[in-house]
Design a protein around this nucleic acid. Sequence first.
RNA 1: GCCCCCAUCGUCUAGAGGCCUAGGACGCCACCCUUUCAAGGUGGAGAUCAGGGGUUCGAAUCCCCUUGGGGGCACCA
Length: 501
Amino acid sequence: MLANDENRAQLRVRMAPSPTGPLHIGTARTSLYNYLTARHRGGTFVLRIEDTDVARSTTDFERDIIEGLHWLGITWDEGPQVAGGEDIGRYAPYRQSQRLDRYAAEAERLLADGNAYRCYCTSDELEAVRRKQEANHEPPRYSGRCRNLGDAERNAFEAEGRQGAIRFIVPPETVSWDDLVRGEVEFDNALLGDFVIVRADGSPLYNFTVVVDDAEMQISEVIRGEDHISNTPKQIALYRALGYPLPRFGHIPLILNPDRTKMSKRKSQTAMDEYRRQGYLPEALVNFLAFLGWSPGTEEEIFSLDELAERFELGKVHKGGAIFDKDRLDYLNGVYIRSLSDEQLALRLRPFLPDAAADQTVVRLVPLLKERLVRLGDAGELVGFLFETDATVASWYDGEDLVPKKREAADAASALRIVRDELSPLTDADWAADLLESRCRGIAERMGWKPGDLFKPMRVAITGRSVSPPLFGSMELVGREHCLRRMDDALAKLSGVGVGA
RNA sequence: GCCCCCAUCGUCUAGAGGCCUAGGACGCCACCCUUUCAAGGUGGAGAUCAGGGGUUCGAAUCCCCUUGGGGGCACCA
């Protein structure tokens, strides 16, 4: 008794994703809130895989979910640590597909205690009743037709080959709970029909399995999405019938599409892995997700996972939903990218760059794009010119782009020629940003051009575009030989257009 | 249709009766810096706190109603 009370005093939270799809942004956020709550209060965080829907659950999805959570830096104290792997924790197994015997036993107990019964209605019959109820403006609920079946009728159905699902008898009473984020919530269970807890084929259903597992795993606070509010009264009734102590419930607001509907794959990018592949940093995602529905109450806004764990309080979570604002995520991602050291950034950039980028080059690249990277995945686009072959490069130029505003093509050509000729005697060793810049500024001055006007044709010649990383740093990385050749190509292009040279 | 929940700038939010002529951030617009683009700096537009009633000396903050929005109503989770 004492031991049990001590257990209950211990905070235990859990995340129970079902592997019927890749890790969803919303699942990640709910996981994060559970994780932060556990860490903040020194509790235990449990991961349980709800794979009772055999038809839709796969280990690939389980892997995506587990790896995605790990990638975010979220860890759990109990549960499978690896997809398909061993469980850690004293309430193992943590996959519902491996806990079927427990549900069967509890269902039997409910049946024996008269809290549940077998129902032989077909889905067509059920559907017909539901339609009628809707037409009569009544709440759609099971009629209770099979609740008081006599032995004869039951035998007749079974003889017919009908299997019979198990329905839980919902006591017609008002239930209420003190929600961790919303306060007092009330619901009249008389509005509910007896719901199915075990399918005719013997497989248990969600509302039943969560209760059995949360109770056995001693979960003290159930923190989940707002879309579960209407499941709570059903589950409370089940807790009572089963004689389990009630946990506390906390329903966090939903993450929304821009049109304020529940965030969906159809309208938003919901797969966590997509964000990883685009080059969002887990730190940025975590920071961003934490603030979707919560704030520390100050004006600080950059927080690491550990700092969040220090500050996070479920009681400060909002009740209203929050739109997933991509612009803000992008901003935060930039902040985190810029906060990385050059070495760290180079490391993270590696998988996003073409193979041609040797590790050496990546490190030298970083200073050029650090300030202009929104996502790591944008790096290739930004510095692609470094890895192009000169043959492709030639196709970049169209005479127009090479010419600065208010200048003639002939001017651009002669300017480029001067630059080319003055730079070509430099050795490879001299080919460094500082020297190149001072030389070119000197040329501009002698020509009476604004530096920017001279740099424009050079930029296009070297990088193939009028927007690029800093010119001289880029030239240094491209190297003397290729720079000279690209300027020659540009020159040819300019004359090819037939305007001077 | 039935039930439940929610409601501060376009967005994320601060705000727990007087500190609010409502603060910050993103986005947006200017200007500065500047070799382009970014980044950075400065400034600006942007919310009669959904509307209406109360309670109170005093309400964004408490209560009620209305409106609007969302979620749930499965032998899915």
